[in-house]
């Protein structure tokens, strides 16, 4: 079992769906949603939340700074 559990919170209305966070994620947690936000962008979301390790890579590369990262040590 993983020693850390992470989670991200995406500011859905500010996300522009560029997808730069997707290749940055080492555990392939993030994907773009089928739904769109108010601006018509497919926003990023946690597709596999169990895999998130809270490494912050997605938040570091996010051009719009819409990702907040949380990490819990077990």
């Amino acid at each position: 079992m993983a020693k850390v559990k992470g989670a991200i919170v995406v500011d859905v209305q500010k996300c522009k769906g560029c997808g730069v966070c997707i290749p940055a994620c080492p555990t392939s947690v993030i994907n773009l949603a089928n739904e769109v936000n108010g601006k018509g962008y497919h926003y990023a979301f946690m597709e596999k939340p169990d895999e998130c390790i809270g490494c912050s890579n997605c938040a570091i590369v996010c051009p719009d700074g819409v990702i907040t990262v949380y990490k819990l040590k077990l």
Binding site: K5, G17, G54, A59, D64, G65, V66, T68, K71, L72
Partner: peptide, 29 residues
Amino acid sequence: IIKPENLVYKKTDLLTDKELSYCPGCGHG
């Protein structure tokens, strides 16, 4: 997991909450 004490990264307060005017994926942000 999503609790203030577990926060590891958030956008700095030195950036305003305004939406950036750049295209999606632009390195400026």
